[in-house]
Structure formats: structure tokens, C-alpha cells
Design a protein around this nucleic acid. Structure first.
Lengths: 321, 321
DNA sequence: CTGAAAGCGCTTACAG
DNA sequence: CTGAAAGCGCTTACAG
């Protein structure tokens, strides 16, 4: 790598002056400026960000923590975050992290990341906060509201004659499980009865992937309760659940209607196409990154609520009489 | 952040000694060692990696470049790479990059990444190499062989009575399109005739996503050639193609059998389940990262060939008479 | 407008 | 075994 020193020598100026023109941080006579720029160009000089970081204390490197890299939902969040990040000269690293592994978060701090995006549910975040760099997550300044989407979904089901709607929770009920609360409200709103035996709580690990969807659905079936529709807390779980249903010889949607959440692009290729809720992940990613930059620069914080919207597809049909 | 200086003061040793014990890089009397360790612990000291990097010239930060973050294939590669990386104390950042954007690669160099994994096809890599840090990609030391898988696939199709097999290439034919070559060989091996009108070349952009699959399939249908099976260069393209077929009222697999490549975990949730080739993406990711570390450390390079294997699922059936 | 100098937090010969 | 010192490549008051 060519250093500032070489540029200074070639341009016959001091090293400081090179910094001044490269960073545009001080007035410099046009001629000197030209000389430096020419040297920079000729040598292909690029400032060493490591050295710069050591003094400025900023790396323009942020980390995004997810609990399951394979969930395409996070890819969209990431793309949203990167779209803002790259404009602002930031780079974002995704790390798949087992929740409760404080150590790796500490390591990020020692690497000097300027900030952290917690992309997993806000329920899992608390422990980490306050250590090290600024953090953002959905649930503080950037909010996600599922209320209308869930209400619309229940409304749609009721209209089609469904009375018993199950839920696969994904997130433990003892935590701040807003989607569960919205679900209960919606059930009440539409005059249904809540049957707690149709609510399948999360497993202890707190995963929300296909395997957990399968597990939860298996448990639900074992309970031998009557139900004609299931709402899973995300699409991956819904897909796992669909598979279990299919293997049990239960037809979707004729026997059971099913709804997921996240609107993964993949859903349109399933058969039946899966009903879901659009959560505008890309938008969420953008908002989180935006907020993080504001926190880093200690600017006034913006606030943003994103509304999920219900999407009805083939996986929902009239309930059997 | 607590610095080495504070540790030194607390432990009543020189700053150098702190480094010696933290890095375990020199003999130190047990007592001194204890004192230092105690201070480190008490203060929660972690070496500033930025400062360290400035002198050691290594950041233990590598970048992985992909052409479509949304392809779950890359997520698996990433997970494989990270599994090796984290053992070795490396962190890997994924960047979605528009090929031919040399600038961003240069920026990575100025950020001091120790190496780069090019996860997109090796066809797209050439331009970048030789600039900056060590690079790895499939096609050098880590090889992917599709030969057997493609031959098995054609064998399977022939056995089921297929005579006219189309291919959606994804990668331009003028580039080093090994899968196309393997396809041609397999066609010949099994006594079929190659009909070049059944080969749909990539679009100029060189994308390989659902949209490109849809585009290619639309083009194929427009050619009005007879065919009973289609091989798409990856699963995403196959899914896009499936959709076009379905919308055209063509049944899968009764009218057309279809095969993808990558074995995305999602495929088992499609209906019909999609035949594909397992490319062991996780394994590929591990091998690439392994190789990259060897290059970085200037160790002897390992070499590794990964064989894809054909997976026959519901999307293949007997050809119509 | 320009530059000499201190300092960011480390590593690592070198000397004692 | 221990530490003083140079140096990694930058930024940025400060002085001229």
C-alpha cells in the first residue's frame, strides 16, 4: 500500500498537507492542491482506514446481529441497511449469533465497530445493551406494528367461516410477545373465543425456523383440539408447519388454512401460495441503519413506525362446515 | 475503552509487559503474569484491534463478495465460511456487489481486509484479482465438479423417456460455462441430440435469480421448440421458470420436468418438490475460508474438489408419449 | 496558507 | 525476566 509519506514526497509538501487536501479539511492554495491530487492519482494512494480509525475513533464499520442467517428475512433487512450504509461510507458485517453469547459482542467492541444492529426480535436484545457502541433494534424509535395486519387476517378468516384459529408463537409468551397480544385482541375483536390449547408456546431455545414450525405443529396436532386455521409467527415456521400437515395427510387449505409472516419472496413459489404479512423488511433495514447513523453522530433521532399488512393468498379458504 | 496503559499502571509493570502476557509472546515470571492477568480481568481490558492491526498489518477481517445476497445459496456459503473463520478469530463481512465495480474492492483494501472470498461464479472474478489482498474463489484450489451430477440427471431423464432437454444457462455461453459443457457432454453420452434452440443463453446482465429464470423460460416457450424437460443453472432460476410454466397452464411435472441446482433447503417445501443438485454450499464455504487463511498465512495451499450430486424429486416424471 | 510535532493504542526488536 | 523506545499511518491543534 502506498502511504501518505510517499505522496508528500512526490508532491513536495508535508504529510500534513496531504491529509488536508485528501480530507478537504483546510484551505490550501490551488497549486498545492493540484500537486497533491496529481501525486495521489499517480500513486493510487488511498488513506489507510486503520490508521485513520485509530485517531478518529470511528471505523465506519457496523455489525448486524441475527439469530438465523438462513432466514431470507434477514437478507432483506441487510440489503436495506446496506443501501443506507454504503451511501454514508459504512460497511456492515452480518454475524449469526447465538443469543446470550455476550463475548462475541464484546469482541465487536474491541474491533471498534461504530454500532450494532440487532436484527433479531427486540425480546432478545436487552442483555446486550449498554455495553459498548450504540445499538439499534426494532422496538426503539423504529417500531413495527402488526396490529392492523393481524386484525385483518382474523377478520378475513372469520368472514370465511373460521372459528378456531391456532397460533404457533415462536417467541416465548412470557417475553414481550406483541404479536401474541395482537392476536388475542383480534380474536376478541371479532367475537371469537380464545382457546389457550390452540396456542403453542415457543420451545426453550427460542428458534423460529422450519424445524420449530414443524415441532410446534406436531405438538398442536397431538393436542387433538379442533381448529381450521393456523397463524405462524413467521413464514419459515409456517413452511415447517405446512410440511407436517401435508405429511399427516391434511390438505391445505381445504382442511386447514395457514398464514405466515414476513412475506418472503419465496412464498409465491409455494403451492399453495402462502398467505402472510408484509413487513417491509427492506424498509426496516433502512430505518435501522438510518437511526444507527444518527446515534453514532449524536444527531437528533428520527422515529419510524412500519405497519405490517395482511396478504391473502391461496393458503386461505372457506372453513369446512 | 480501557487501554493497556491503565492495565500497566494497575499491575505496576510496563506497557510492554502487558502485551507480553496478553499475547503470550514472551516468558514472564508467574507472579508478574498473575498481577497482569488480575488487572486485565478487573479492568475488563481488551486489546484495541485497530491499534494492533496498524502494526501487525492484519485485521482478521475478510470480505465475501456475492452477486445476489438474496440467494440462500450464499447464506450457506457464508455460514460455512464463518464456521471456519470464527475458530480462527476472523470476522467475515458479506457485500453484495455489482460485478465490475472495482472501486468497492479497492475500498476493501484500504479498510485493510486480510482477504476476499469471491462467492459468485469464478467467471466473474478475473478482473478483480491481483489487486490488493489474497483472494479465493471456486475454480482455484477449491473446485466444484458438476460432471457426475449432470450426467446422472440426463441419465435419469433419458430413462424416463425424455429426448429433448432444454437448458437455462444463467451464465453467458461465451464465458467459461462449465455446467453448459458438462450438459453437452451428458447429452452426447446418453445418445441424445443437442438442439441449440433449446439452450437459452444468459441475459447481458448475467443475473441468475427468479426474474432471469422467468425471462429465460419465456424466451424458451417463444421459440416453440419441443421439449419435455428443463435444466436451470440454479434453483432460483428454476423457480422463476416454474412460475412461468404454471402461468402458461403447463403442468409440472406431467408436461414438463424441471431440475435446478444448489439444493436450497426451501425446495422441499415447493410443490412439486424440485429436483436439483446438491452442491454442499456449507462445505464450499468452509473450504474457501480454509484456503483463504492458508493464503493469508502463506502456508502451503490445500486443494479440494467438491462433487455435486443429483437429487431426483417430484418435479421429474415420465415423459409424455 | 503550510508544516513540525504530539498522540491514537498497540507490537517488537533491542538493551540491560 | 523486564522495560525504554521506535514505529505502524494517520489527524489535528498549534505555531509560524
Amino acid at each position: 500500500m502506498v502511504t501518505r509519506k510517499e505522496v508528500a514526497e512526490l508532491a513536495k509538501v508535508s504529510e500534513a498537507t496531504v491529509s488536508y487536501v485528501v480530507n478537504n479539511t483546510k484551505n490550501v492554495t490551488p497549486e498545492v492542491r493540484e500537486r497533491v491530487l496529481a501525486a495521489v492519482h499517480k500513486l493510487g494512494y488511498r488513506p489507510n482506514m486503520i490508521a485513520r480509525s485509530l485517531v478518529t475513533k470511528e471505523t465506519r464499520h457496523v455489525a448486524m446481529l441475527v439469530d438465523n442467517l438462513k432466514n431470507p428475512y434477514y437478507c432483506e433487512i441487510l440489503e436495506g441497511a446496506q443501501s443506507i450504509a454504503s451511501e454514508a461510507g459504512y460497511i456492515v458485517s452480518v454475524l449469526s449469533i447465538d443469543v446470550s453469547n455476550k463475548k462475541s459482542v464484546m469482541e465487536l467492541a474491541s474491533r471498534g465497530v461504530d454500532g450494532i444492529i440487532f436484527a433479531m426480535g427486540s425480546e432478545k436484545v436487552d442483555n446486550y445493551l449498554r455495553i459498548g457502541p450504540p445499538c439499534v433494534y426494532v422496538g426503539e424509535n423504529v417500531y413495527m406494528s402488526y396490529q392492523k395486519a393481524i386484525d385483518d387476517m382474523i377478520g378475513c378468516l372469520v368472514e370465511k367461516g373460521h372459528r378456531n384459529v391456532a397460533m404457533l408463537c415462536g417467541i416465548p409468551l412470557d417475553q414481550d410477545n406483541i404479536r401474541y397480544q395482537n392476536f388475542v385482541e383480534a380474536i376478541n375483536n371479532h367475537g371469537l373465543n380464545l382457546n389457550s390449547r390452540l396456542i403453542v408456546d415457543a420451545c426453550s431455545g427460542g428458534r423460529t425456523d422450519e424445524a420449530e414450525g414443524a415441532r410446534a405443529m406436531t405438538e398442536l396436532l397431538a393436542r387433538k383440539e379442533e381448529f381450521s386455521a393456523v397463524y405462524a409467527i413467521n413464514d419459515l415456521m409456517a413452511m415447517g408447519a405446512m410440511r407436517v400437515l401435508r405429511e399427516a395427510g391434511i390438505q391445505i387449505p381445504q382442511d386447514i388454512s395457514i398464514i405466515g409472516c414476513d412475506n418472503l419472496s419465496i412464498l409465491r413459489y409455494l403451492s399453495p401460495t402462502l398467505s402472510t404479512m408484509d413487513v417491509e423488511a427492506f424498509h426496516v433495514g433502512r430505518s435501522l441503519m438510518q437511526l444507527l447513523i444518527e446515534k453514532i453522530k449524536e444527531e437528533p433521532l428520527s422515529s419510524n413506525t412500519i405497519d405490517a399488512s395482511f396478504i391473502c393468498r391461496e393458503s386461505i379458504t372457506e372453513a369446512r362446515k
